[in-house]
Amino acid sequence: MELRQKHQKRQRRKLGRLLAVAAAVVSGVGLAPAAESPERHTVRPGESVQAAVDAAKPGDTVVLAPGTYRESVLITTARLTLRGSGPATVLVPPAGPAAADAHGCARAGHGVCVTGTEGADVERVSVRSLTLRGFKGHGLWASRTDRLSVRQVVSEKNGVWGLAQQRSVRGSFRENTVRENGDAGIFLANAVDAEGGATDQGGALIAGNTASGNRIGVTVRRVRNLTVRDNELTANCAGMFIVGDESKPAAGAMTVRSNDISGNNRLCPATARLPVIQGSGIVLTGSEATVVRSNTIRDNVGSAPMSGGIVLFESLVGAANTDNVIVNNEVEGNGRADLVHRGDGGGNRFTGNTCASSEPAGLC
């Protein structure tokens, strides 16, 4: 009898606890609030893209219907996706000068800007499936970002860079088309407004893009630890530049592989930074420990100082190329030569390449 009474008491206490939990569920007392679900904000021509971006929360998506939007867009919200409906979704500059109270992206003349702050990078922003056309600055400009993703974007006929990033890490630029921009189609740098050593990009990726009609297809300047692969670079003045200077750490420690770089024979005049450019496939200037492998580099022809298929060229401030590996590339029909090593620098290795001419002789 005594054991049965103890068992009954335990059962009553258990039932009491279950009833208390049930009451809390009904009343909401003591439970954490449910997380807000990501929202989708749809914008149509004639409506403000910036207003939708400003209203969005981290994790939200702003979707642009097909059509033309006359504005610049500034993104400072983490995990935001700005997605068009394909190339027929077009951002172009607004008519007339930017208003005095416009955001900095509009005043600078860029199309889309993704910007963090000195103390906090803006993380995991995605821009995809739209066209950026005719801005006096850059089509897309990113600064202080982490894991920015730019995919299936057409950036064309912009005054300086098509897609550009500085002071950022782990960016991904994939399957974009960059054409007829004033400088590089795709540009990654440590910082454009300050000197300093190359910065670690944390494994940034430039892959599967098409660049044509630009001054340079792809430029990576004073950066390290990234991959440039499977891009098609044609009809630019130069296909690709890997740029360093006397600062430390040196630029380089990257992989350039499986790119198709052909017919980059436009003639571009000299600038304050570079001499005349024509007929350059891949140019390394001030690079160390970069691996250039399994690329196809054909018919880049010119008589400029950096002309050639794969060219190691001492930088204009005297920084040498050191310990780079040029291996298993198909390099043919380039002039002044298929493989070129000009200037000082030791430890550079040319091996397994298919080529017909080199400067100096013996690199093929």
Results as ranks from 00 to 15, higher is better:
34 A>I: 10
162 G>M: 01
252 G>N: 02
324 N>F: 08
176 N>Y: 00
145 T>G: 03
319 A>N: 03
187 F>L: 08
259 N>Y: 06
315 S>C: 03
290 T>Y: 01
340 V>S: 04
158 N>W: 03
215 R>I: 00
261 I>P: 02
162 G>R: 05
95 A>E: 15
359 E>R: 09
198 A>P: 02
132 L>K: 01
331 V>G: 01
101 D>A: 05
14 K>T: 12
215 R>V: 06
127 V>G: 01
286 G>P: 07
14 K>V: 13
49 V>R: 01
206 I>N: 07
143 S>N: 10
160 V>S: 06
320 A>V: 13
105 C>Q: 04
24 A>D: 13
196 G>Y: 09
130 L>K: 00
363 L>S: 00
261 I>Q: 06
226 L>T: 05
184 A>F: 07
328 N>Q: 10
93 P>G: 06
47 E>W: 01
358 S>C: 04
91 L>T: 03
307 S>A: 15
229 R>S: 12
252 G>R: 00
234 T>I: 10
281 G>A: 08
191 A>V: 13
267 L>T: 11
227 T>W: 03
189 A>Q: 08
34 A>N: 07
270 A>G: 10
74 L>F: 09
199 T>K: 14
85 S>H: 11
187 F>T: 05
301 V>Q: 15
163 L>H: 06
25 V>S: 05
85 S>W: 10
129 S>W: 07
305 P>M: 10
118 E>A: 15
306 M>Y: 12
318 G>I: 08
58 P>A: 08
46 G>L: 04
107 R>P: 02
248 K>G: 04
241 F>C: 07
215 R>G: 01
9 K>V: 11
110 H>N: 15
232 E>M: 10
228 V>G: 02
356 A>L: 09
319 A>F: 03
189 A>P: 06
88 A>E: 15
256 V>C: 01
32 A>N: 08
23 A>E: 11
231 N>H: 13
240 M>Q: 13
110 H>M: 02
297 I>L: 07
71 E>S: 10
165 Q>D: 09
251 A>M: 07
84 G>I: 02
268 C>W: 07
82 L>Y: 01
350 F>C: 08
67 G>Q: 05
32 A>C: 05
123 E>K: 15
59 G>L: 06
261 I>R: 05
170 R>V: 04
225 N>K: 11
303 S>E: 12
146 D>M: 07
33 P>E: 12
172 S>V: 11
47 E>I: 03
93 P>D: 01
102 A>L: 00
351 T>G: 09
221 R>E: 15
315 S>F: 05
27 S>D: 06
192 V>W: 14
290 T>D: 00
190 N>K: 12
